[in-house]
């Protein structure tokens, strides 16, 4: 396990596997002259669950939007399975295998749950029943309430519909923008569990999270964004116990986290230290 983790953290030059998605020196922004991303290098290998954390305004959501063609890319590139997908429009990206779940307004409120999922695979309507079955194994409650209007659902339920919708096209990479935002603690747990399940079903996931600790606990690898750059990277556990990351990005959050969660996080980090002796800590990029 330690070897694999190390390979993920710093892909060696001899690594033959191509990342399923990677960005190279990505520069992007909304207003002319103001760059939000300043040379961002992020990659995700097949089957990985990638977390992106960082302070407010670091460019986390902007990174996802840039990948998904919703923010103008000024320089740099994004590749998906070897193809250059820089600046492609959303509908093209969906057909190429990128799925996106926005943070807000992520369902069609006047459409039923089933119709929401149908819209998710607008480009491949024939595969509906097959994909519907897959999605409802992860989200069984969606099948039970398929005729209900999505506008009548709670925030957590909407999140499930939104993730289900994005999964319908069988994406290679799923982009999640703060899936736990605005949810109750119980719902947050459930959401992280579902994200984990989706990832275990073989979908690479890139997840932006405000809830840094919880994110680091479940992800394979994570990036800490700061001022539009990937400041640190490593496995979730490495970052969790890295004093610098803790001080800079988790410190303020740690105060908010209740003692119990903190203890669990610490013990988890401790176990990693015990087993993964070979890991070299966090390497600033």
């Amino acid at each position: 396990m330690a070897d694999t983790t190390a390979a993920y953290a710093t892909p060696s030059p001899t690594e033959t596997r191509e990342p399923v998605l990677y960005s190279t020196d990505l520069v992007a922004g909304y207003i002319p002259g103001v760059n939000i991303l300043n040379g961002c290098n992020i990659s995700a290998y097949a089957g990985e669950l990638i977390g992106i954390i960082g302070p407010n305004g670091a460019g986390k959501s902007t990174f996802l939007k840039a990948v998904f063609g919703q923010v103008k890319i000024r320089s740099g590139s994004i590749h998906l399975k070897g193809d250059d997908i820089t600046g492609l429009k959303a509908d093209k990206l969906v057909s190429k295998g990128v799925g996106m779940v926005p943070q807000n307004n992520n369902v069609f409120p006047t459409l039923s749950i089933e119709e929401n999922l149908e819209m998710g695979m607008f480009q491949a309507p024939k595969l509906f029943s097959e994909r519907f079955e897959f999605v409802t194994t992860i989200f069984p409650e969606l099948a039970k309430r398929r005729k209900q209007r999505a506008g009548s659902l709670s925030g957590g339920e909407r999140q499930m519909v939104a993730m289900g919708r994005a999964l319908m096209m069988d994406p290679s990479v799923l982009l999640l923008d703060e899936p736990s935002a605005g949810l109750s603690p119980v719902r947050q747990d459930e959401t992280f569990l579902r994200v984990h399940q989706i990832n275990r079903a073989g979908v690479s996931v890139i997840m932006v999270e405000q809830n840094a600790r919880r994110c680091l606990q479940i992800c394979d690898r994570a990036y800490v964004l700061d001022q539009g750059k990937d400041a640190y990277t490593g496995t979730g556990r490495e970052l969790l116990r890295d004093p610098k990351v803790t001080e800079l990005y988790l410190g303020t959050l740690a105060a908010d986290v209740d003692a119990d969660t903190k203890a669990r996080a610490d013990s988890a980090a401790g176990t990693t230290t015990g087993t993964a002796t070979g890991t070299a800590g966090v390497a600033p990029v």
Partner: peptide, 24 residues
């Protein structure tokens, strides 16, 4: 119809419709 549902989807949320792969 598929196009008709997509029309309602665009009415509901055009950017999400685009994110779902609908050519708005």
């Amino acid at each position: 119809t598929r196009i008709g549902k997509a029309t309602r989807a665009v009415s509901d949320n055009a950017s999400l419709a685009a994110a779902s792969g609908i050519n708005v």
